[in-house]
């Protein structure tokens, strides 16, 4: 693999400014006391010291509301296309989540509305400088390596170490005043990334396999799920901030001319009441997850067991976004899983 490079603080700014001058750069910026991935026009907006963003960076490839098709009197035209983009400052847990989506969107019928932007994007991951209040990324799916990013940027005492992982990551080097990193700088970067592990405020004390087995076994324990979901609003916030959720709904809308229109896909959320409602023969309706608790249970089954074989690990990367977003504070995977483990032992 390519050699690690070094750039100082000023050099990094020049690099980001040069990138932003030649293509779309999306990076973490401050937003009313929180952070979000947004398009930046200058390095001054960049906040690599962010803890976690409100929405995960998957929104770059899979926007919350994405026009996918325009139609007009029988003519149908795709309206997704990839824009040359650098996605900068992705933490390793989000890299893991994107890697899962890459797999899921590619299998069977490849989802080109996702893949076209994914393939046009270069991901520069970065080290975690601030740990978010509900993070547990150092104790979930620890055997799964982050992959799919094109470079990794680590802040060290004197500047930044940039480690290209793909030709796309290597190709960006020409935009900044990089030099080859010394062995000490590379060692310091490794130490920075190692030492952040073990600093999360929350911790899962069980292996992926133990959790998968016991959560699955608890499926029929209605009393437990009723209790866990008692305060649930079914608002879907745990889904809509999740970096590994990928369900969507599709809606057509007409333009004023009533001849043309747009088909848009929207993030859907399996916690919401209508998610599993279907229309049957003769207009009958059936909702196969009618209760708060069955929808709550479904989410935990999806995150801890159903997809594990396919993904090689749990469909949860420990970002803690759901814990933070849940107004009733009942969505925290660490607390829910720990309760299940303790109560069913």
């Amino acid at each position: 693999m390519s050699v690690a490079r070094f750039v100082d603080e000023r050099g990094l700014k020049a690099f980001v400014d040069a990138l932003a001058g030649s293509r779309r750069v999306i990076a973490p910026v401050a937003k009313r006391g929180r952070f979000s991935f947004e398009e930046v026009s200058s390095a001054d907006e960049l906040r690599l010291d962010y803890d976690v963003t409100i929405l995960p960076p998957k929104k770059v490839f899979f926007p919350p509301a994405q026009p996918i098709v325009r139609f007009s009197e029988g003519e149908v035209e795709s309206c997704t296309c990839g824009i040359d983009t650098v996605l900068l400052g992705v933490h390793f847990y989000d890299v893991k989540a994107i890697d899962q989506l890459d797999y899921l969107m590619r299998e069977n019928n490849a989802d080109w509305d996702y893949l076209c932007q994914r393939e046009a994007t270069t991901i520069i991951a970065s080290n975690i400088q601030t740990v978010s209040p509900r993070a547990f990324w150092d104790s979930v799916g620890t055997h799964v390596d982050p992959q799919g990013h094109d470079a990794f940027l680590t802040r060290i005492a004197t500047g930044y170490v940039y480690e290209p992982r793909t030709p796309k990551g290597e190709a960006l080097l020409e935009h900044g005043p990089f030099r080859e990193a010394t062995a000490e700088e590379t060692a310091e970067a490794r130490q920075v990334n190692e030492s952040v592990m073990g600093t999360c405020p929350e911790r899962l004390g069980y292996t992926t396999e133990e959790i998968a087995e016991r959560v699955r076994d608890a499926y029929g324990n209605e009393k437990l799920w009723d209790e866990l979901a008692e305060r649930c609003f079914s608002c879907g916030s745990c889904n809509t901030v999740c970096p590994t959720c990928y369900c969507f709904d599709v809606l057509d809308s007409w333009n004023l001319d009533q001849k043309s229109g747009t088909r848009t896909r929207y993030w859907d959320a399996c916690l919401t009441r209508e998610f599993a409602a279907v229309t049957g023969a003769g207009g009958s309706r059936e909702n196969f997850r009618e209760r708060h608790s069955s929808r709550f249970r479904h989410r935990f089954m999806r995150k801890t067991t159903y997809l594990n074989e396919k993904l090689g690990g749990p469909a949860c990367v420990g970002c803690g976004r759901c814990s933070q977003a849940c107004t009733a504070d009942i969505a925290d995977p660490v607390r829910v899983i720990t309760t299940i483990m303790e109560r069913t032992s």
Partner: peptide, 13 residues
Amino acid sequence: YPVCVECKRTETV
């Protein structure tokens, strides 16, 4: 669905 869904889709704090 509730307003939370739309706040999240627009990444409202």
